[in-house]
Structure formats: C-alpha cells, structure tokens
Write a protein that binds this DNA or RNA. Sequence first.
DNA 1: ATTACTAAGTGACGAGTAT
DNA 2: TATACTCGTCACTTAGTAA
Lengths: 237, 237
Amino acid sequence: MNQGGHSRQSFGRKARTLLSLLSLMKMSSGSGEIVTSTGALAEILGVSQQTGSILLRELASAGLIMRRMSRRGERITLTPKAYDVVTQELAGIPLDSLSKASRTSPLKITGRAFTGKGEGAYYISQRAYSKQIEDKLGFAPYLGTLNLRVTKLDDINKLTLIYGTTPIVLKGFSTRERAFGDVQCYRVKVEGVSNAALVRSNRTAYDLTVVELISDKYLRKALSIKDGDGVSFSFPA
Amino acid sequence: MNQGGHSRQSFGRKARTLLSLLSLMKMSSGSGEIVTSTGALAEILGVSQQTGSILLRELASAGLIMRRMSRRGERITLTPKAYDVVTQELAGIPLDSLSKASRTSPLKITGRAFTGKGEGAYYISQRAYSKQIEDKLGFAPYLGTLNLRVTKLDDINKLTLIYGTTPIVLKGFSTRERAFGDVQCYRVKVEGVSNAALVRSNRTAYDLTVVELISDKYLRKALSIKDGDGVSFSFPA
DNA sequence: ATTACTAAGTGACGAGTAT
DNA sequence: TATACTCGTCACTTAGTAA
C-alpha cells in the first residue's frame, strides 16, 4: 500500500525512515546485516528504546528490513528495497562535491572509558608492533590501550570519516604461536595529549562503537580517567 | 545554541534537516545555488508552503543555507557547513553497493503537461537532429515535444536516476545562424506508447522539474492530453 | 504574487509498565 | 535481560490570514 496518497506527516516520516536506514547501513558495514537490540540501536540514534522499537517495526512493515529475534538481541537484515529507497534519495547528489567540501574544523569525538579484556595491551606488548609504532608514529607506546565506547550517532559518523582517510599501517607478522594482522593507526589528540593514535585491528573493526587509543603516556593516569568517564579526542591530531 | 544537549525530538529534527539538504543539493545540480520559493520548494518536498517556510528558516538559522530574498522568489545558497553535515551522515555508506543494488521494477514518473515556448519543436525540426533520431532511436519524430512539469520529490529522484544512466547522444552541430549542442536521449514508454524518448539538452538540463518527451506520434492528440493533465512515462521503455 | 505569523489538529516521543 | 503496549505531553504540520 505504497501509493502516492500522502497522509499527513509523510515528509517527516520519510526523513526518519531514510536516516534510520542510513544508520543501519553504516552499522552493517556493507554486509546488510546487523546484530543489535532496540535499546542499543535507540541509543545510537539518540532516541528512547520505545522509539527504537517503533522505528524498527515501521521499517519491517514497510518491507525494508527483516527481523530475526532471538533471546539476546536480534538479527536485522536490510532488504534490497531498503537499498532502492536510499539509492533513490541519494540519486543526483554529486558525491564528489561532498568530498571536496572543505573539512573546516577538526572532528571531536567523545566516548566513555571502559575496561577491556586486556587484548589491546597484549597486542601493543608485541615488540614487532611497538617497534613500528616508534618508527611510524614517533613515540614509544605505553603498553596498554584506552578503550572507549562511542554511542552517539554523530560521533560514529565522525569515526567513519576518520576511517575513510589513509591510515598509518602497522604491518602484521607471525610468531610461532599465532598470526597478528595489520593494524590501522590514525593520529589523534586525546584531551590535549598529542602523542596518541586511534588503533584499529581486524579484531575490533567489526564494532563501530568501540575505539582503542594508544599513547606514550598511561592515559588513565595522566588524565585521571575512571571507567564510565567521558573522554574526548580530536582528529586530525 | 547548537550544543550536544539533545532536546527532545533531535532525531526527527536531524532527519528532516538531512532530507531537506539532500533535496536542495539535488535541485542545485552541484552548483550549491537554487532559485526557488518556499511554495515551490514545499511542493517538491510534498509539504505545505508554511512548512517549507519553516524548514528554510531552520536551515538558515542553523547556518546551513544563505537566503537572498527578492520580490519574486529567492536565491538559496548552501553553505560549506551543509556539505559537512551531509558528508557526515553519508560517511561510511558504501555507495558502490547502492548502485549495484538491483533496480527491480521500472521507474514510473508522472508530470503535468504544459505548453512551452515552442523551442523544443524548433530543435526537433532541425534535420540534423531528426535524422539522428531516426538512426539512433529508430523512429521518425513528430516535430514537436511534449513538456511535462514534475513536482513530486519522488519523481525528481527517479529522474536523477535516469540521468545517471548512459544516454543516447544526438551530436550537436552548427548552422550559419547558431550552434546546437549535444542532446541526451533516454528511451521511455509514455502511457503505453513505446516509440518515445526523454530528451535533455543544455537548454533544459538546468531545471530538474521540466521534462521534454518526443515520439513518432503527436502525443497530445494520440493520448488526448490537455494542459494540466497528468501524464506518466516509464523507464526503461 | 511572495514570506511568515497564529491557532488548532494530529502525530511523534518517552516514562511507566506488561510480557 | 529483551520487546512493545498505554498514555500524557509536546512538536510538527497545516489552514487561515496578515504583511
């Protein structure tokens, strides 16, 4: 029942649908599949869990997504129709003019600190990595990472902009125990600290909401950061 | 007052802003400037003139557009900030996957017939053009064009999709009086009539809301079209 | 003709809550 | 935990109209 008969708030409706789809597409990283919950999605979109629920229901009933619910969260699949809708809305937008549009101010991103499983520290502690960091980033890294969770959609958008730039790449290597893949680094400034970088490995790249930062300082101490604190960094550094 | 403090409907707000900007960008055809009125813009967006007015005021106060008002209509200029906003929202969207997303059904576009200034007929009457039409499109054109005005945003979006495909090009030429530029043709089916094409020249390309159709038949007569009638065509033909 | 104010109707949003 | 319902509140939209 998708005829032209505009009910009343069709513009706002369409706008919300488009922004929801764009967000889902970003989260899916091209795969067209997202595993999330109405609450998590809602937080990213900046709306309540209830509204997140309604948005997903609308998208589903419009045939734009498929939902597979399970006990803990659900699997959302974007349908071809969703891509059609976005394609139509974006058709005619000169994307070149977007990229040439001057990035005026640095990107500032805020996340909340949390304690990871120590895997980041394990990575950085590998000599082959830390040596490359000294060579390519110019500082000897503290042997640990500061983990941030980014939830605001605006910030996630900025992250994808950063990931779209050319990274400094730490080459992967193999020990007799296991293989370590390439790591992408982006120079950032963390609350005024310049010798810092955002690091992104295959291990974490799948989750757009998690950011790992390294620095020559023990950032938690230098900046007095506790779990749950808001931490901002800017790019370019 | 554009701080992070999400007031209440920031999601819907952002969504409307984004869709408005996208529409304006499409209308500007990359130049970043649009000459329109709140009423005309509103019709394209599918909202009332009042809402169109409010949208423009919001965009202006957010620093996303500049408005130069004059007696009849106004000149709108998109600011760099507008491109930044759109860039951010579109960052991370794999645009390639959009174009490869299967166009399933043909595009159907509806416009309202109107009487032009006869320039289209003047063009078609040029032997150099009509000869090429016979050769490349396979029919001898009726020496006139059917003009349609397209106002619905969805239809304009579809038009830009059509313009994104590879056209059949009628080569330009010069008479001793003046020069005629290249003309892009797209095969369409007009209300079931197959020998038809949408023609686009430098003369009309600036206005996305105007469509010129040619056919081997006198379409106004064959389909009993009067000014103001709704006429639909589909692509691919 | 245009833009935009006011008032009123309606839809969207979120807190509380059921499941 | 999760999703989604009810309902009160507020924002968006539009008709009428002023300028």
